[in-house]
Amino acid sequence: MIVAQRKIIPEILEKLKYHKKILVLGCGTCVTVCLAGGEREVCIIASALRMASKLHGYSLDIEELTIERQCDNIFIEMAAEATERNDAVLSLGCGAGVQAVAERYPYKPVYAGLDTAFIGILEERGVWTEKCIACGECVLSDYGGICPVARCAKRLLNGPCGGSKEDRCEVSPDRECAWQLIYRRLKDIGQLDRLKNIAVPKSWNKSRDGGYRVIIRDDHRI
């Protein structure tokens, strides 16, 4: 899922200072799971903005709404009336959600209330870690299901660098060395021989270096 975290209140307030009526729009999918932009967070941020704006000498009139998914027009439609009656939208969706809402309502200012961080998983209660950088060409099958592109600080494809200490990454001692994990995992599943293959330099053509990417499925188009 996409993992995000909320921006601090003064930063949001600064962006909203030219408006009076704000719709705080939550998203019920990824950002709800990572406790950044769901119904509960909409309530918290709306309350916080009401109080902070009052203390700054003006009162924001805030409406709260959470839709199922902000990256999907069918659901964005459900926020049409609420968007219409407010001056601006503070989206608590991920980067895709904010842009989808802005595209749907071209004459309404839409602001981001979250910093979208990465594609990751819930590691344990309250801890999320990055697992995928969406490079466009998945190499997971060759590395026992552990991604050296996302989880090795140097994105090395042919073994660890000389800097790792035991199972720790040299960049930060609180990070595991992805290559240590890959080695252990391949050993456990009896595929250590995979490491004998030398990986050619990764092609980044399918990554985002050529601008934003588009996937077209003709079989699903009319």
């Binding site: 601090i8 209140i9 003064p10 918290i44 916080a48 109080m51 902070a52 203390l55 700054h56």
Partner: peptide, 8 residues
């Protein structure tokens, strides 16, 4: 912490 951000 949030209250500090708000100004309370």
């Amino acid at each position: 912490k949030l209250l500090e951000e708000i100004g309370v």
